[in-house]
Structures are given as structure tokens and as C-alpha cells.
């Protein structure tokens, strides 16, 4: 994946949690609007559920991509933490490792949030 240039910025750290936040927001807003406007919308509960399943897959995909980039930034794990030397390289590896950890957490958190899509079958039961 050479086309993905390595970006030297502080903000990549937040990629995966931001994806989690967007996924969460989309799920919440979609069902809030759907459940409030059921009468006016020509959509079924299951359609919304499926669509959000698709959103979940996309979100997980982006997180995996960010995790891969982070893994690369971390040097594919060739070097162990703590990455505390005063060098550009250790700083970069620290960033990569922390980003990778956050991608892991975000992946799990997206899965958590998608569990209700499987088990809840109506707006109000």
C-alpha cells in the first residue's frame, strides 16, 4: 500500500476513535429518526438494521486500515515499547503503537455498539 503516504501529524492518533464516534452517531441518529417517523417513512425496521450492519462493516474496515497504517508506523512490531528515546524514530514508533492500541479498542467498541442490531427487533417491545 505504497499509495498511502506516511503522514507526520499528531492527529492520526484519533482516527480510529473518530470512526467509532461516527459509527455510534449514525446508528443512534438513524434509529432515533426511524422510530420517531415510522409512519412517514417507507422503510422497515429490518432495512434500517441491515443498512446499519453495512455501516458497521465499513467502520470496521476503516479501523482495520488505520490499524494497518499504525502497525506500519510502529515498524511492524520489530521493536518493543517503551519507545522513550529522544529520537524521531522512537517518537514515530510510540505514535504507531498508541494508534494501534486505540484501533484495537475502537474495533471492540464498534462491535459492542453493533450487538443491539442483532438482538433488538423493534423500536418498543
Amino acid at each position: 500500500m505504497k499509495w498511502l503516504r506516511e503522514i507526520e501529524t499528531f492527529w492520526t492518533l484519533f482516527t480510529a476513535p473518530t470512526v467509532w464516534a461516527l459509527h455510534f452517531l449514525i446508528c443512534y441518529v438513524a434509529f432515533a429518526v426511524f422510530c420517531a417517523k415510522q409512519g412517514a417513512l417507507a422503510l422497515s425496521f429490518d432495512t434500517v438494521r441491515l443498512a446499519l450492519g453495512g455501516v458497521t462493516v465499513v467502520a470496521l474496515g476503516v479501523i482495520v486500515l488505520s490499524a494497518w497504517l499504525a502497525w506500519r508506523q510502529w515498524g511492524f512490531g520489530t521493536d518493543d515499547p517503551p519507545h522513550d528515546a529522544p529520537t524521531d524514530e522512537d517518537r514515530r514508533k510510540f505514535q504507531g503503537f498508541a494508534t494501534l492500541l486505540l484501533a484495537g479498542l475502537s474495533f471492540v467498541a464498534v462491535l459492542y455498539v453493533s450487538v443491539p442490531l442483532l438482538f433488538i427487533g423493534a423500536c418498543q417491545s
Binding site: C35, Y112, V115, P116, A122, C123, S125
Partner: peptide
């Protein structure tokens, strides 16, 4: 009295 789906999303995030 919010929709149960909404409650479940927040419950899941609260556990996470």
C-alpha cells in the same frame, strides 16, 4: 421511554 434500540446502543458504549 426512548426506543429500546437507542437505550441498547448507550448501554453497549457504557460497558465498553
Amino acid at each position: 421511554g426512548l426506543p429500546q434500540m437507542s437505550l441498547a446502543f448507550f448501554s453497549a458504549a457504557s460497558e465498553a
